[in-house]
Deep mutational scan, measured.
Amino acid sequence: EYSEEELKTHISKGTLGKFTVPMLKEACRAYGLKSGLKKQELLEALTKHFQD
């Protein structure tokens, strides 16, 4: 599980793409985000969540 700060850091540095799909799905579930099946959809959901 990833902390909010850790995820925000990866988003701001542009390194969230280094996460694997299972890692991204886990992060989306942890924050109650609707997650797609594609890596890009997962990245967009997390990025949008933490930028709002």
Rank of each mutant, 00 (worst) to 15 (best):
E1K: 15
E1R: 05
E1H: 07
E1L: 15
Y2H: 06
Y2Q: 04
Y2D: 04
Y2T: 08
Y2M: 10
S3R: 07
S3H: 08
S3D: 12
S3I: 07
E4Y: 09
E4H: 07
E4Q: 07
E4F: 11
E4S: 08
E5D: 12
E5V: 10
E5P: 06
E5N: 08
E5T: 12
E6P: 02
E6W: 12
E6H: 12
E6Q: 12
E6S: 14
L7H: 02
L7S: 02
L7D: 01
L7M: 09
K8V: 12
K8H: 05
K8G: 07
K8T: 09
K8D: 03
K8S: 09
K8L: 14
K8Y: 09
K8I: 12
K8A: 10
K8E: 09
T9I: 13
T9M: 12
T9G: 12
T9D: 13
T9H: 11
H10N: 05
H10Q: 09
H10M: 12
H10Y: 10
H10D: 03
H10I: 08
I11S: 02
I11M: 07
I11Y: 14
I11G: 01
I11T: 04
I11D: 00
I11E: 00
I11C: 08
I11N: 06
S12M: 14
S12E: 15
S12N: 12
S12Q: 15
S12P: 02
K13R: 12
K13S: 08
K13Q: 14
K13T: 08
K13M: 11
G14L: 05
G14W: 02
T15L: 05
T15S: 06
T15P: 04
T15H: 02
T15G: 04
T15F: 00
T15Y: 03
L16A: 05
L16D: 01
L16R: 01
L16V: 06
L16F: 02
L16Y: 01
G17K: 08
G17L: 09
G17C: 14
G17D: 15
G17H: 08
G17A: 12
G17M: 10
G17E: 15
K18A: 12
K18M: 14
K18W: 08
K18C: 13
K18F: 14
K18N: 15
K18D: 13
K18I: 07
F19M: 11
F19K: 02
F19D: 03
F19Q: 02
F19I: 04
F19L: 14
F19S: 01
T20P: 11
T20V: 00
T20A: 05
V21R: 08
V21K: 04
V21Q: 13
V21S: 03
P22H: 14
P22Y: 08
P22K: 15
P22W: 06
P22M: 06
M23W: 10
M23E: 15
M23H: 03
M23A: 12
M23T: 14
L24K: 00
L24P: 02
L24N: 01
L24Q: 01
L24I: 01
L24F: 01
L24E: 01
K25S: 10
K25P: 00
K25D: 13
K25L: 08
K25V: 13
E26F: 05
E26V: 09
E26T: 03
E26N: 04
E26L: 09
E26Y: 05
A27M: 14
A27F: 15
A27Q: 03
A27G: 00
A27D: 00
C28T: 06
C28W: 01
C28S: 04
C28E: 00
C28L: 07
C28V: 10
C28G: 05
C28Y: 00
R29T: 06
R29H: 14
R29P: 04
R29F: 09
R29K: 14
R29C: 08
R29S: 11
A30V: 14
A30I: 15
A30T: 03
A30K: 15
A30W: 07
A30F: 07
A30N: 04
A30C: 15
A30S: 11
A30Y: 15
Y31P: 00
Y31G: 02
Y31Q: 09
Y31R: 09
Y31S: 03
Y31A: 09
Y31W: 13
G32V: 00
G32P: 00
G32H: 13
G32Y: 04
G32Q: 04
G32A: 05
L33C: 05
L33G: 00
L33W: 00
L33R: 00
L33S: 00
L33P: 00
L33F: 02
L33V: 13
K34N: 13
K34I: 08
K34Q: 13
K34Y: 10
K34A: 11
K34P: 14
S35W: 03
S35V: 14
S35Y: 06
S35P: 13
S35N: 03
S35K: 02
S35R: 06
S35H: 08
G36C: 04
G36Q: 00
L37S: 11
L37H: 15
L37G: 15
L37T: 14
L37C: 11
L37D: 14
L37M: 13
L37I: 15
L37R: 13
K38M: 08
K38G: 12
K38V: 09
K38P: 08
K38R: 11
K38S: 10
K38H: 10
K39G: 03
K39A: 05
K39F: 01
K39Y: 02
K39P: 05
Q40N: 13
Q40H: 14
Q40W: 10
Q40E: 15
Q40R: 11
Q40P: 07
E41N: 08
E41P: 01
E41D: 12
E41F: 03
E41T: 03
L43T: 08
L43N: 05
L43P: 02
L43A: 08
L43D: 00
L43G: 05
L43W: 05
L43Y: 02
E44L: 09
E44G: 09
E44T: 10
E44S: 10
E44V: 06
E44W: 08
E44F: 09
A45W: 02
A45P: 02
A45H: 03
A45M: 10
A45K: 06
L46Q: 01
L46M: 01
L46K: 01
L46H: 00
L46D: 05
L46V: 07
T47N: 04
T47H: 04
T47L: 11
T47D: 10
T47V: 07
T47I: 12
T47F: 05
T47C: 06
K48A: 13
K48M: 13
K48S: 11
K48R: 12
K48T: 11
K48W: 07
H49C: 05
H49Y: 11
H49L: 02
H49T: 02
H49Q: 06
F50M: 07
F50I: 05
F50P: 02
F50W: 05
F50R: 00
F50S: 04
F50V: 08
Q51V: 04
Q51G: 13
Q51H: 10
Q51M: 08
Q51A: 10
Q51R: 09
Q51L: 02
D52Y: 15
D52E: 15
D52C: 05
D52P: 04
D52N: 15
D52G: 15
D52K: 15
